[in-house]
């Protein structure tokens, strides 16, 4: 977790220093997309290689899926409510101001 934060902060500082060079960021966005594809491919490999996951997915996969959908739906609903109640108005004005 520490590594992640250090790498992220290093990136943010470099990005901040480069902020005037707009052409760089078009390239960065494309690199990010390409690396996401690579990450999902690699993640897929580790799922395919994990015998526990592969051999049990049809038995307990449904249970896991039901719990996931419940948790995700609950999180999205609560977060949406909090955002509407406490943040949305201020955030919208502020972003509009800066544009």
């Amino acid at each position: 977790m520490i590594e992640i934060l250090v790498i992220m902060v290093t990136g943010i500082i470099i990005g901040y220093l480069l902020r005037q060079k707009r052409a760089v960021f078009a390239v960065i966005d494309r690199i990010v997309m390409a690396v996401i594809f690579l990450l999902l491919f690699v993640l897929g490999i580790s799922v395919g290689l994990n015998e526990t996951v592969v051999s049990t997915i049809h038995i307990i996969g449904i249970q896991a899926m039901v719990l996931t959908l419940g948790a995700v739906a609950g999180s999205i609903t609560c977060c949406w409510l909090v955002w509407r109640l406490f943040f949305a108005q201020q955030f919208d004005t502020e972003v509009t101001d800066e544009r």
Partner: peptide
């Protein structure tokens, strides 16, 4: 990925 995402975030004004 995190490194490149960081660069993108750092360069964005909003």
């Amino acid at each position: 990925l995190i490194f490149f995402v960081g660069i993108g975030i750092g360069g964005d004004a909003t």
